[in-house]
Structures are given as C-alpha cells and as structure tokens.
Design a protein around this nucleic acid. Structure first.
Lengths: 151, 151
DNA sequence: TCTATATGGATGCATTTGCATCGATCGTCA
DNA sequence: TGACGATCGATGCAAATGCATCCATATAGA
C-alpha cells in the first residue's frame, strides 16, 4: 500500500497548529504557576464538574470530556479530592462506580483560576484576532475535530 | 488592577484550538507508536538537523526551533546520540558548547518517520480542508504566534 | 444458576518531565 | 590581568505520565 503525501498547505497549517498551541499552553501554564494556581487540567475538570451540577459526573464521563487517559483522570481526581475540591460519592445502581461532585471550595478555586485563565485567553487570543476571525478559526478547527463539528 | 474578561468567540476558539491540537497529536503519536517509530519530538529534532546540513546546530539553537525546554533538549539529544542518529562535535570557538549533526542513520530514520507522519498529516488535515482553507487557517494561527508571522 | 466476558476504576513499575542547581567556559569591565 | 556576571549544557531529585495489570462488579449466555 502506498502512503499518502500531504499537501504543502496542509504541512504548513499543521506546523503552525502544533507550535501555536504549544506556545499558548506553555504561556498559560506559566501564568497560572506564577499566580500560585494549579495547572490547566485542574481547571478543565473543575469546569466540567461545575457544569454538571449537583448530580456530578462519573469518572468515565469525564474522560471523553477532558480528553485525558483513564489513569490520568483517576489520579487527577485523587489529587483534587485530597485538596477538598471534589468529593466522591458511591453510586447506587453500579457498585463499581462512583460519582464525582465539585465542592464549594472547588467552585471557588475554579473562579480563582478563571480570573487568571480568562485574562490569558483575552490577551493571547482575544486581542489578536477580531470576533469574525475568531469565529472563522473556530469553524475551521471544528472541521478537524473527530467527529467534525459545525458552526 | 482589573482582570480582562475574554470575548465568547475567543473562548470558543481557544477551546477548539487546545482540544483539536491535543487530539491530533495524540492520534499521530499512536500511529507512530503502532509503526514502531519514535515520538514526534524525535522527528522535529531530526528535521531541524537535516535542514541545518553538515554544519549542524548548537543545542541552544535547537531549543527555540523545536520549542522544548533546555533540559529536554539535552536529554533528547543524549537519546538520539545513543541510538546513533546524531553525533556531537566539539566546537572550536566555544569551549562550553558542541555542535550536533545528524548522521546518515539519522537521515534514514527521519525518512521512515516522515512516511508515516506525512500520511497522518494528509489524513488528519489535508483531507478535511481545502487548500484555501488550510491557508486561511495557517494565516490565522500565524497571527497568534509570538512573534506574529504574516503570509 | 453458573461461568465467561466486559466494564469501571485503581495502582506498581518504568520512563519522561519539571525544577533547581551545578560545573565549566565566555565576555566584560576595572 | 583578575574578578564577576552571563551563558552553555548536564544532572539529581521529585512529580507526572504511560503501560500493563489488577480487583471488583456487572452483564450475557449456556
């Protein structure tokens, strides 16, 4: 079987995508660290749990949402629980599982992270592109997702 | 001082950017691993060194090109050297430094990785967007780079 | 019901990363 | 020339990640 060769435009866009995203993540992590705040992954999980509300989420639901490996979620939740930011509840109809719920202190931490994270997003993205351009970017990126997503 | 709040469009584009890039990287790493090939970072370094030619590069030059931390480059080069893919040469006019040059076997490895990596790029990007769209994407991403880059 | 298989989640172990620091040389300035 | 701060690159140690596997429960099939 013959391997495909990518178009030059694809290679260029690919390179930019990887480099830019790494640069942005790194900068954001630095800013959070400088503010004595936990890493981005913590925010992601706290955000999902906050959106999920009182019902909480099962760890395996978290896995697809935050795009982390199972063992990573398992350990991250352990750290969050140790810090009192989430709590694990047994779930009645499945003896294997548990439900994870954000605590008030977790919500507070989420707010604190967001104050810094949101500002970083504004600095690093919002200020560089117009609203129309941001929408165009989101739309193009959506087509690269698996599964692709519209709007 | 008041913190900025990001525009909703910025938040959406940000989320897509981080998720899509992680998804693409992960998929690509999986493909490489399945082919018994080393990780993407190896390709990056071999690619830069191949472009640099016989003159090679100093490790600190590699650092900004591949966007890796200094200690990461140091250790990655040690692994590449152990595998005979690069060689380290003393540099005459700076007793602290060294020059790193790709070996024939390193060039060969780069080709083998590219056969798989290039096909992944074609699959994951080239097939999803038109040439025009890819250029638009690259251009938008270029504006997010630090420093921003045109074309 | 009893057994086989699949799923949810945790964990031991090896590798990789991040952080701080170190040794060595270079450049500058008195 | 001699001293001092900066730069290049490596490395010890701690934390995080990846991998394989494990335990427990759930589900399906004979």
């Amino acid at each position: 079987m013959t391997k495909k060769s990518p178009a030059p435009e694809a290679v260029k866009a690919w390179g930019r995508l990887l480099r830019v995203s790494r640069q942005l993540v790194e900068k954001t992590e630095d800013i959070l660290k400088a503010g004595g705040l936990p890493p981005l992954a913590w925010y992601d999980v706290l955000h999902e749990l906050a959106e999920a509300g009182e019902g909480g989420l099962r760890p395996f639901e978290l896995i697809d949402r935050v795009l982390l490996a199972q063992y990573n979620v398992s350990r991250l939740l352990a750290r969050l629980e140790a810090d009192g930011l989430v709590e694990k509840l047994p779930v009645s109809d499945d003896g294997r599982g548990q439900t994870v719920r954000i605590t008030p202190s977790g919500r507070e931490m989420r707010r604190r992270i967001w104050a810094v994270y949101g500002a970083a997003i504004a600095d690093l993205m919002g200020d560089k592109l117009s609203a129309k351009e941001l929408e165009a970017l989101a739309s193009l990126l959506g087509r690269l997702r698996d599964p692709p997503v519209g709007d």
